[in-house]
Computed example of a mutant assay.
Amino acid sequence: MRRAQDIMGLPVIEIEAGKQVGTAKDFLIDRDWNLQGVLLESKHWFASPRYVAWDDIVSIGADAVTIGNEEAVRSWDDESDTFGLLNGNFKLKGMPVITVNGDQLGLVEDVYFGEKMDKKIVGYELSGGFISDIKEGRKWLPSPESATIGEDAVIVPVGCVAQDTPSFHEIG
């Protein structure tokens, strides 16, 4: 299992020519909680955003994200049905996670995905705020069967409970 933020800042290398095509800046996520791609850091202020679709990623290692060739790099429209974890007009980080009955579980701090390059997000790291994070640590919310990403909050079923963050080998 990998945390999304552990990937940010890694170089994106195309293996056909061994050329770096960018740096991982953010993850693109759809409303069904599937990873759709990796947004690349722009080298120029006015350059249009670029991304690599999740299906075009060969591997995500400890030191780099690899893709087949430079043709995998595409333009990204910020108004599309995807949104960023950290950046963009609509971002997931910092959104409150609230149960249907109105209990706030925390704020989205990070997402976790499986080691086998699965698109599905398997869980969320939640923050209770700076002081709570220091005193109690962040919480882990396994991905519920259904969750709604709204304009101002993520809505989850009533039975969802944030737990202490497990170690990676406990998650899967």
Rank of each mutant, 00 (worst) to 15 (best):
G94H: 07
G94N: 04
G94Q: 05
G94C: 06
M95A: 09
P96N: 03
P96Q: 09
P96L: 04
V97F: 05
V97E: 03
V97G: 04
V97R: 05
I98T: 15
I98R: 14
I98Q: 11
I98N: 07
T99S: 12
V100S: 12
V100F: 12
V100H: 13
N101I: 11
N101E: 14
N101Q: 13
G102S: 07
G102T: 08
D103A: 12
D103V: 10
D103C: 01
Q104R: 13
Q104E: 15
Q104G: 00
L105V: 03
L105T: 07
L105D: 08
G106F: 01
L107E: 12
L107H: 13
V108Q: 01
V108E: 06
V108Y: 01
V108A: 04
V108C: 02
V108T: 03
E109R: 13
E109F: 09
E109M: 07
E109V: 01
E109H: 15
E109L: 06
D110T: 04
D110F: 06
D110W: 05
V111D: 01
Y112F: 15
Y112V: 09
Y112G: 03
Y112M: 13
Y112A: 12
F113H: 02
F113N: 00
F113S: 03
F113D: 00
F113T: 00
F113K: 01
F113C: 01
F113Y: 06
F113E: 00
F113I: 01
F113L: 06
G114S: 13
G114E: 12
G114D: 14
G114Q: 09
E115L: 14
E115N: 14
E115M: 11
K116F: 10
K116M: 11
K116P: 05
K116D: 15
K116Y: 13
K116G: 09
M117F: 12
M117A: 07
M117Y: 08
D118F: 03
D118K: 13
D118V: 03
K119W: 01
K119M: 08
K119A: 11
K119C: 00
K120P: 05
K120S: 12
K120F: 01
K120G: 04
I121E: 06
I121P: 07
I121Q: 09
I121D: 10
V122A: 01
V122P: 02
G123I: 02
G123M: 03
G123K: 02
G123P: 11
G123A: 03
Y124R: 04
Y124C: 04
E125W: 00
E125I: 11
E125N: 02
E125K: 03
E125A: 07
E125L: 08
L126T: 09
L126I: 05
S127E: 07
S127T: 13
S127C: 06
S127K: 04
S127I: 06
G128N: 08
G128P: 08
G128C: 10
G128E: 12
G128R: 11
G129N: 05
G129Y: 01
G129I: 03
F130L: 15
F130T: 13
F130Y: 06
I131W: 14
I131A: 15
I131H: 10
I131T: 15
I131P: 07
I131G: 07
I131K: 14
S132N: 15
S132E: 13
S132R: 12
S132G: 02
S132Q: 06
S132H: 10
S132K: 15
D133T: 06
D133R: 06
D133P: 09
D133E: 10
D133C: 09
